[in-house]
Design a protein around this nucleic acid. Structure first.
Length: 400
RNA sequence: GGUGAGAUACUCAAGUGGCCAACGAGGGCAGACUGUAAAUCUGCUGAUUUUUAUCUUCGAAGGUUCGAAUCCUUCUCUCACCA
């Protein structure tokens, strides 16, 4: 039993630190029904959860199956600093009301995956604010600059001559302190969080809370471009809240190489099944597109429903394979006569009329399926279907 | 505190008085080819119905000049070395 649980927990992980302790915790659960806590921190700056987050969430859900109680931490205090991981710019300070709003939105999305009964949502400002200057000073004295600079991105920035603000040094310390306060048994995070996660162990030792958390790291999910990590700011993400059609389409647009990565990290297929698919594609018995479709179906169904996913697939087939127009699209209205470039902007298909003109010139604009080349074209009264590129559509009603 | 170097569009990075909305690369968008894949090739990538034009933009504010990303002054920020 323990072995099965352990295998499931270890699936897809990049690295586990102190696996022995993890085993002990599981053993205690199976033998004495003792629960343990699993901490995962999230940044409240982006309320839009994407598939990258769900890699962690799914892992948390597995822990819940085996006695784990989740400490879902919203880093409202640390968000004021901004996690230095991979970034150089300082983030904007969020208003408390925004943090609450984002947290609420997190909850709506997170409990599609997590069991709310076994989850506690906590905010780290709750215990960091009372720390005060004295507590903060004590915290900073537990670490030194040389070791702080060992951290890969600090090191790189330091060498490259990019500024590092002192407050950024506090980020790992505070994240580690969260583990002290919460007395977490396990913390999970992405591999890029390694330094911060280890800080939790360090501080738990320093503050003598009588345990050191195990650390479980998940690989970072690449975004749609297949190169950079999935993130909202890079715009290469698939949001949990994306509409079925959009979600399905986005998954299908990833590259074949990236597809295997997504299979590994997101799909619930066993590793053996994935291997079989891979072999099938290699020897030509399976078409890669079919395999990708299966993945898109699975994921879309997870966040919506089986029916919605099938609907999205059918729609996709209609629009792209047979290049018909989608069954649903945003509708707009305007008064005749309206210049086509203006209409495209009004329908949110183009960001500016200049851009719209360029798009017309390039031949990517279609009206009712017909390519438009005249950028001076005026729309008279009637109903039109405007299209820019392959995937942007809008219905426009022009009235006299 | 002192000395020196630097800040250019989404990112990197050229440009040191007019030929600059600003070379180039990456990214992004679009077209061709495809499986809305990848790779490849091509075009576009500040705004505006004056489109061989006009307006705004090269850290900020002033100034010199017919004309400034480019020169001068002050300021803000960053880095390096010294203390």
């Amino acid at each position: 039993m323990i072995q099965t649980a352990l295998r499931e927990i270890k699936r897809g992980t990049a690295e586990i630190i102190d696996e022995a302790r993890l085993e002990t915790l599981l053993k205690n659960w199976f033998e004495k029904k003792e629960t343990y806590t699993v901490k995962a921190g999230f940044d409240p700056t982006a309320p839009d959860l994407h598939l990258g987050h769900t890699v962690l969430l799914q892992k948390l859900a597995i822990f819940q199956k085996f006695g784990g109680h989740i400490q879902f931490l919203i880093g409202d205090f640390t968000a004021q600093i901004g996690d230095p991981t991979g970034k150089s710019e300082t983030r904007k300070k969020l208003l408390p009301s925004q943090v609450l709003e984002n947290a609420q939105s997190y909850k709506n999305q997170v409990f599609k995956i997590l069991d709310p009964e076994k989850t506690t949502v906590v905010f780290n400002s709750e215990w960091i604010n009372p720390l005060g200057a004295a507590g903060m000073l004590e915290l900073t004295s537990t670490y030194n600059v040389a070791r702080m600079l060992e951290r890969d991105d600090f090191d790189k920035r330091h060498k490259a001559g990019i500024s590092i603000s002192i407050s950024e040094f506090l980020y790992p310390l505070l994240q580690g302190y969260d583990s002290v306060h919460l007395k977490s048994d396990i913390e999970i995070g992405g591999t890029d969080q390694k330094f911060n996660l280890l800080m939790g162990r360090h501080l738990q030792r320093v503050y003598e809370i009588g345990k050191e958390q195990s650390v479980l790291m998940m690989p970072i999910l690449e975004g749609l471009d297949g190169v950079q990590k999935m993130s909202k700011s890079l715009g290469n993400y698939i949001a949990v809240a994306d509409e079925p059609n959009e979600m399905f389409g986005k998954i299908l647009s990833i590259s074949d190489t990236l597809m295997w990565r997504y299979y590994e990290l997101l799909s619930s297929n066993s590793l053996d099944e994935i291997e079989a698919l891979k072999a099938g594609v290699e020897n030509g018995s399976l078409h890669p597109k079919k395999v990708k479709e299966a993945l898109a179906l699975e994921i879309t169904a997870r966040f919506h429903s089986e029916d919605a996913a099938l609907g999205a697939q059918a729609e996709f087939e209609r629009v792209h394979a047979q290049s018909e127009i989608p069954s649903e699209m945003d509708e707009f209205s305007a008064e005749a006569p309206i210049w086509i470039a203006k209409a495209l902007v009004d329908c949110l298909l183009s960001p500016s009329t200049s851009q719209a003109r360029r798009e017309i010139k390039q031949g990517s604009v279609k009206i009712d399926q017909n390519k438009l080349s005249d950028e001076q074209y005026q729309l008279e009264a009637g109903e039109y279907i405007l299209q820019v590129g392959k995937r942007k559509f809008a219905r426009l009603k022009v009235t006299q």
